[in-house]
Simulated assay, not measured.
Amino acid sequence: MLKDPWLDRWLPLAVERAQDRPVLEIGCGQGDDTATLARAGLNVIAFDLSRAAVAVARVRVPSAAIECRDIREPLPAQAQDLGVVVASLSLHYFAWKETVAIVQRVRHALRPGGLLLCRLISTEDRNFGAQGHPEIEQNFFLVDGEPKRFFDEESIALLFAEGWRRLSLEHFVTRKYVKSKAVWEVVLEKDA
């Protein structure tokens, strides 16, 4: 994997909004973004479904509280009244109803004015399954045996229609992986 500094430009805002509260990272993987957040002086609580990834992330970022957890389960106990939640490429494994429920739980964990910094796989992503796979529901496919959701601007607007104020929505191609990946970068603020 290559360096993917997507979070760097949002760090000043994340530091400002976090205040004295931890930052919650959903789907931390091996800790790339966890390390970025910790280097900025933020207290990070993070989780991922993969035990192997969590083990690597714990070694890379010993200052962070990292655990193995499924996002469909309740959030960690300390994930309350947060100023910042980060979810990079971790909200795309679920049916629409589950995705909406996850986003509502995240919103509930944020204080008014809290930020959600997230990246979502684009429907324009051709290298990682946005075409040529059995469709489960609209923009949700069975890719090599795994469910994977892809987002367009309309579905993002629908997902974050209630209780959010959009600060930024941009389409990018990341070169973090061997093949390029098309993603939406979305920054939202919880309404008061």
Rank of each mutant, 00 (worst) to 15 (best):
Q78H: 12
S88M: 03
V85S: 00
T36A: 14
D33K: 04
A53W: 13
P22H: 06
P62C: 10
G29Q: 04
P76W: 10
R72V: 03
V84N: 03
G27T: 11
V44D: 04
D33M: 03
A52D: 15
L49H: 11
L49E: 06
C28I: 08
D48L: 12
A38D: 04
A77W: 09
A38C: 07
V56H: 14
L49Y: 13
R60K: 15
E98S: 08
G29S: 12
P74I: 14
A35S: 09
L89G: 01
R51V: 12
W96A: 02
A55C: 12
R58E: 14
R58L: 02
N43Q: 15
A64P: 07
W96V: 02
P74A: 15
F94M: 08
H92A: 08
V44R: 01
I45L: 11
A101F: 06
R51D: 15
L49M: 10
W96H: 03
A95I: 00
P22N: 08
I26T: 09
R51Y: 14
Q30A: 14
N43S: 15
L37S: 02
P22V: 08
I66N: 02
S88I: 11
R60I: 03
C28V: 11
V84Q: 09
G27W: 01
H92P: 01
P74V: 10
P22R: 00
R39S: 10
A35I: 04
E98D: 13
A101P: 03
I45P: 05
A53H: 13
A77F: 13
A57W: 02
A79D: 05
L42C: 06
D70Q: 11
A40N: 05
A87I: 00
I71C: 09
D48I: 12
L82S: 08
L42V: 02
V56R: 14
Y93H: 14
A38W: 03
N43C: 12
G27C: 05
R58W: 06
A52P: 10
L89T: 09
Q80C: 11
A79N: 06
A52R: 09
G31L: 04
S90L: 06
V86M: 05
E98P: 00
V86A: 09
L49I: 13
L37Q: 01
L82P: 07
D81G: 13
A46L: 02
Q78C: 10
I26E: 02
G29T: 05
A40M: 06
P22Y: 06
C68R: 15
S50I: 15
I71T: 08
G41T: 06
Q78S: 14
A101S: 10
W96T: 01
R69E: 14
S63R: 04
T36E: 11
G27A: 07
G83D: 03
C68N: 12
A65S: 14
E73N: 12
R39P: 03
I66L: 12
A40T: 02
R60Y: 03
A87E: 00
Y93T: 06
A57T: 07
G41M: 09
V59M: 13
D32T: 10
I26K: 01
R58T: 05
H92F: 06
A46M: 08
F94L: 04
A55W: 11
S63M: 05
R72L: 15
A52Y: 10
D81P: 06
L75S: 07
E73T: 15
A64C: 13
A35N: 05
F47T: 02
A53E: 14
A95D: 08
V86E: 04
L24I: 07
A35C: 10
